[in-house]
Nucleic acid binder design. Structure first.
Lengths: 110, 110
DNA sequence: CCTATAATTCGAAATATGTCGAATAATAAA
DNA sequence: TTTATTATTCGACATATTTCGAATTATAGG
């Protein structure tokens, strides 16, 4: 069973955050910290500053800022100022719920 | 590595489809065919007709139809006319990609 | 053929989203 | 303090989405 209205809303907001191509790219850059072929599930999440994270995306800084804010609001990305930069990272625990949602289960998933 | 632009686009469209509360509910109803506490991963996917699927959602038939069409376009839900009804179901193979996306991996996920 | 049921298409209206540039804030360094 | 760098906020505009009701299509059964 289950049927936590809050849970459903949280899932929905996470999917909304990932429904934009730019935001999906940003999130993926934070999720995949490894160089190709490397096994890398680091104890401490890898961090990028906002500027680095948006490199090559060809969007205005204000737009980039807006998208990161959305990802943060949706609970997918953490942010913390560090000097002139603001660092971003993904907290693996916050992603688990999404991973489970698509897996076959014994009961209701929402 | 990887970087299939098509794959990224497909993921994005799937998330967009799930970013609406009504569509998330519809998708979840198709995903979770089991009564609570029952182990049920049937060989043949469970089907609902459009009308049954939308019961209790309090949206107009035309809106329901629109949402199912979106889920179908995104590749999340299959549809087939059966007499007066149109049956809907989820093809588990089509969901795998989404499940994998949120799991820790050895390389790029997009 | 006529009627009832199930679902879709279409057009319109309200609301939400993505984007930019200009202005502002936060910080570091000269 | 002044300047440069990094990032955010704000207001505006164009585009997209959600939703409905009316009209239409598809089908089954008298």
């Amino acid at each position: 069973m289950s049927n936590n209205k809050t849970d459903s809303t949280l899932l929905c907001e996470a999917f909304k955050a990932l429904s934009n191509p730019h935001r999906l790219t940003l999130f993926n850059r934070l999720m995949n910290c490894c160089t190709p072929g490397t096994k890398c599930i680091p104890a401490v999440a890898v961090r990028y500053c906002v500027g680095k994270l948006g490199e090559g995306l060809d969007i205005a800084p204000s737009t980039l800022s807006h998208h990161l804010k959305e990802l943060n609001r949706a609970g997918l990305v953490e942010m913390e100022r560090k000097g002139k930069n603001v660092e971003c990272w993904v907290e693996p625990a916050k992603i688990e719920r999404l991973s489970v949602f698509f897996q076959p289960s014994q009961s209701d998933n929402l």
